[in-house]
């Protein structure tokens, strides 16, 4: 297994380079001059002299490839530049905003798994019956509701009308509930539907028929079906977690959550290119690394993929 991980990590290097290049290209592809933007966001009227001076200061007067190599070299050392707005290192800004987003995404993942798996099992066990139809209807509603709308409805019901939970901000454990629920809702619906479909397909497999024919209990057979279906949905889960991280910006804005998404939205409005670049790079890394992580988990769970079978 360590060999497999190492091989995969090595194979990721070109992909990571491509992500870093695209993130860097954002500044180059921007219609406005970064030096002018850097001056304007600080309420300084850009004169040709000032623009030239800022260009020199930001290293924008150097050739594109040289700038990219310098940026990449610094990024590898954890230096992602300085924010145009706050004049603080982007890495510090990211590190400050990262824990609330990670906590929110973690909580949302727990909701997706904690509610999605039992819901899928209930739908599977009652396939075609009224409970399945009702649950699938709710799931459909969940996947069709935009996050910002669901968030506003939750605030209206639980915070304003019932006065049970805070409307927004990060203030104690209860403030996690509404944003995490809003963030989890679309993924919960998708994952439940996927797992239900996977369980129905697994139930038709020969090993289930064989287990039934040998008289295994319904619970034991259900366990086999769930285990095999979860294994086949691991790849989707691997994509869901970074999506929860990346998709948090809408929820963070609705709930005034001091996380990465809000930092990025603020940076977009301010055209704070170093922060936007860092956000894009970070999200790309998250997708790639979670995919790798899920591949490793799949290899551990499924002996046909990896060499990490339980009995060996």
């Amino acid at each position: 297994m360590p060999g497999l991980v190492l091989r995969r990590l090595l194979a990721l290097i070109p992909l990571l380079l491509a992500i870093s290049f695209l993130a860097f290209c954002l500044a180059a592809a921007s219609p406005s001059d970064p030096a002018e933007v850097a001056l304007r966001v600080n309420d300084i009227t850009p004169t040709p002299e000032l623009i030239e001076e800022t260009r020199h200061e930001l290293g924008l007067d150097k050739p594109f490839w040289e700038r990219y190599c310098v940026w990449l070299f610094r990024a590898l050392q954890g230096d992602l530049g300085t924010s145009f707005v706050t004049h603080r290192p982007v890495t510090d800004e990211m590190l400050r905003a990262l824990p609330p987003t990670l906590a929110l995404a973690g909580f949302a993942t727990l909701i997706v798994l904690g509610l999605g798996i039992p819901c899928a099992i209930l739908c599977f066990a009652s396939a075609g019956r009224p409970l399945d139809i009702v649950l699938r209807g709710l799931i459909f509603l969940g996947s069709a509701t935009p996050s910002f709308w669901a968030g506003l409805l939750f605030i209206w019901l639980f915070a304003v009308h019932l006065n049970l939970l805070p409307t927004g901000g990060l203030s104690g454990g209860t403030s996690f509930i509404l944003p995490a629920l809003t963030l989890a809702l679309p993924s919960l619906a998708t994952y439940t539907r996927l797992l239900r479909a996977s369980m129905l397909a697994t139930a038709q497999q020969d090993f289930v028929l064989y287990a039934k024919a040998q008289g295994r209990s319904r619970l034991a057979i259900l366990g086999q079906i769930v285990r095999n279906s979860l294994q086949s949905t691991l790849a989707t889960l691997g994509m869901t977690i970074p999506k929860l991280l990346a998709g948090a910006f809408v929820v963070e804005c609705v709930f005034a959550w001091p996380g990465l998404g809000r930092l990025c939205v603020t940076a977009i409005f301010n055209r704070d290119l170093p922060v936007i670049q860092a956000y894009v790079l970070f999200m790309g890394l998250c997708f790639v690394l979670f995919n790798l992580f899920m591949e490793v988990v799949a290899g551990l769970v499924d002996p046909r993929i990896g060499k990490g079978g339980r009995a060996r």
Partner: peptide, 9 residues
């Protein structure tokens, strides 16, 4: 080939 659970020995 498919009569046994692929995830268990």
């Amino acid at each position: 080939m498919t009569a046994f659970d692929p995830l268990l020995t």
